[in-house]
């Protein structure tokens, strides 16, 4: 069993590596998509700004990025730079290496995502269980409708509406992470509270869609499990409903939810992108957006690449987790 499981993990890992490779090809293709390479744009920008760029410099830059070479050679340069030097290229918008830009903004993004994720799971799973156990009750109808509407509202609209409401209520649109007066102030309790206040809308906006989705999944999974034959057998044994629900049904219903952690992470990351743009948060979403508007493709592409890799890793972990949680799936997966 142990060695079989290991083999399964290794197999999944190899598939993951293959997927990452294919993703990198796709990402690099997107990077080179905009008409005219970025160097031309860059040189154009420099010249527009009144700087003279010698042909020599242009040639040198071209050689560095292999721009005069075929796609596959350029790709090879790009990938080896990432793998061996951790170099994702150069951001012409920021005039610094992409890695530095990402480093500067990744922390708030990750913190915001993890907090939202925690919030999402803590809320959706208990509500999903409640809704299923009390199917067709008032509470179930209430949560189901909220869930439904939450799934349907586009993120950015919700963000704007909440900003509008916040403005009407408090006179502050809650843009950014801090109010103006705390922006440069040293850390203090007031500043922290200000931060928390500013986090409410982003968490609501990013989390709502995901929470509603998970809630619905949990509810339907739970209903599924509650109607399975083994609950009948368990009742016939004389087991308490509570034990049947929690020992058997919740445990079984949670498996697919656990398996969706990878996807949740993507949804949340995607969510942060839009929310960061609408609410003007200093996180990677905003950076990517600005990069896209300026066709600073190395920066935008790298961020896309990172998100895709995170998804793949998330999926990989989910697969392993699912196999580990569900002995039957373990057998199927390992053999299949």
């Amino acid at each position: 069993m142990k060695s079989e499981f290991l083999r399964f993990v290794i197999k999944k890992f190899l598939i993951m590596v293959l997927t990452v490779f294919l993703i990198s090809l796709a990402v690099f293709y997107i990077i080179t998509l905009p008409p005219g390479d970025f160097l031309t744009n860059y040189v154009g920008q420099l010249q527009a700004a009144g700087e003279s760029v010698s042909q020599e410099t242009i040639d040198k830059l071209k050689a560095v990025y292999g721009l005069d070479q075929p796609f596959i050679v350029q790709y090879w340069k790009w990938v080896t730079n990432i793998v061996f030097h951790g170099d994702f290229g150069y951001s012409f918008l920021w005039k610094m290496p992409v890695t530095s830009v990402i480093q500067a903004y990744i922390v708030p993004t990750i913190v915001l995502s993890l907090v939202t994720m925690l919030f999402t799971y803590l809320i959706s799973i208990p509500i999903g269980i409640y809704s299923a156990v009390h199917q067709y009750s008032l509470g179930d109808y209430l949560f189901t409708s909220i869930g439904f509407i939450g799934m349907a509202v586009p993120n950015f609209l919700l963000g704007i509406i909440l900003m509008f409401i916040a403005f009407k209520l408090t006179g502050d649109t809650m843009l950014g992470f801090f109010s103006a007066k705390y922006q440069t102030a040293p850390w203090s309790l007031e500043k922290f509270i200000d931060l928390l206040k500013h986090c409410i809308i982003p968490i609501l906006v990013i989390g709502l869609m995901n929470t509603c989705g998970l809630m619905r999944t949990m509810r339907s999974q739970m209903l599924d499990e509650l109607s399975k034959n083994y609950t009948l057998a368990a009742r016939a044994k004389g087991l308490k409903m509570r034990v049947i629900r929690y020992k058997y049904c919740v445990r079984a219903a949670i498996n697919p939810i656990a398996a969706s952690i990878g996807w949740s992470l993507v949804n949340i990351f995607t969510g942060t992108t839009i929310v960061a743009i609408v609410l003007n948060l200093p996180s990677m979403g905003r950076v990517m957006y600005d990069a896209l508007l300026d066709q600073d493709m190395y920066l935008a592409g790298s961020w896309l690449f990172l998100m895709a890799i995170m998804t793949v890793i998330g999926t990989f972990l989910s697969d392993i987790l699912l196999a580990w949680l569900d002995p039957r799936a373990r057998k199927e997966y390992i053999q299949g």
């Binding site: 034959n229 058997y248 079984a252």
Partner: peptide, 15 residues
């Protein structure tokens, strides 16, 4: 006590 038509589904696969 009771026994059922489909023994395959009378046990939870998880335990």
């Amino acid at each position: 006590a009771m026994i059922f038509q489909e023994p395959m589904t009378a046990f939870s696969p998880l335990y």
